[in-house]
Amino acid sequence: MTTILQYTLSGLAIGGVYALVALGFHIMWSTAKAVNFAHGDTLMIGAVLAVMGVDAGMPVWLACGLSILAGGAFGVALERIAVRPFTAEANSIGWMLSTIAIGIMAESLATMQFGGFSRALHSPGVDRPLNVFGAGVYAQELLIPAVAVALTLGLGLMQKRTLIGRAMRAVAHDKRAAALMGVNVGRIVAISFGLSALLGAGAGVLVAPVIQASATMGVLLGLKGFAVAIIGGITSAPGVLVAGLLFGVLEKFVEGYISTAAREIVAFSVMIAVLLVFPQGLFGKRETVKV
């Protein structure tokens, strides 16, 4: 029983990271019908810059804040440079490869500046584990899924209540119509990339104390976050959140009861299977053909 609880708690922590990354994919996809394929590197940038900030003598809160802002700026710049020029094209090869290229460059720069090592970002959240009915977990780990849930709710509120949020929904629904209604589509897309990058960098800062910051930390988290977004239905924020948390828990149980190496095989097979049965993801909206 304790074991099951332990797996669930550990799974929720990892799943929270997937959900935060996937939420970023959701925001980008909704407005631009394109994503930053290297979104995992946004997370890396947040974590790595935070550690470098602390190295440079900043207080932790300032280093984290600045690195999240830098992540957001990165997202906006990336959209302008690597996504916008290619979204007009019919197929997606253009922005896929250009964002992958920027990811490679970011990772390589980070390796040079930061070194190949993993580095710790200190947080009081990982000083000692909490005991939850016999299972051990860091406070920081509980914080991650909580933040993911809060941000999903916040995003929903923002999209309903604020002008920018409503504009984002309008653009997601129909770009041309939104433009005709006077929405500056380009700016909304840029904002959504910035917002998703803020989330990504924030996730990096949150997770760095738990999994350590390194130049290569983003790649797999990014790919899995994307897989989660697709499973949940990339058009639905709550769907993405649920899928992320479930995916994390599933992974832990596969690790616990089958083997670590089977984890990737099972997780990605599940993703393909879900897509075959629900082409729009579990909670995504179906798009109909019209001739």
């Binding site: 332990q6 550990s10 922590a13 051990g136 930390m217 616990g256 083997s259 670590t260 190496a261």
Partner: peptide, 15 residues
């Protein structure tokens, strides 16, 4: 017990 690079949590193995 075995694990992969970049694994973030090894509680199953530790247990």
């Amino acid at each position: 017990e075995t694990f992969n690079w970049n694994d973030q949590d090894m509680t199953p193995q530790a247990i």
